[in-house]
Amino acid sequence: MKIKNQFAIFIVLMIIWFLINNSFKLEVIAVGFVLSFVIAIIFGKRTDVLNEFKFTPTAFFYTLIYLLVFFWELIKSNIQVALIVLKPSLPINPGIVKTRTILKSKMARMILTNSITLTPGTLTVDIEKDILYIHWINVESLDIDVATEKIVKKFENILVKIYG
């Protein structure tokens, strides 16, 4: 299990090293290899979130779909915010509501809350076990199930397939 952790960190660090350096010369590759190896060994038992990704073709396919859905929601949310800000009367109706999530993996929960923060009119204030507290700029429903259906489900359905 620890070996798998270290291998995941090593791969991520190597990719980032190539992105920073932007070259594939032999000396750059050698230095990056040694560095990533040392850091992966040091942080192997502290970092256990990177290998929760299921390395199957289905997971990669759904990652692509997730990115598309996410960017569409990001653009939609910005247009909504722009419309609210530009209206002189400021049509807002804020409040904090509860929702539920069924995800267990830590990485998936972080991606879920980040996505909720960046989508139309919602902001994650806190997360505790399976309850998410969400600040909603236009409260549409106080019921926990309806709110879950409206805010969480569209991301959760895809994340379940990626992180299990």
Partner: peptide, 10 residues
């Protein structure tokens, strides 16, 4: 919080 805040379940 804003005085028109509808609800605070937190």
């Amino acid at each position: 919080m804003f005085k028109k805040t509808v609800i605070d379940l937190y």
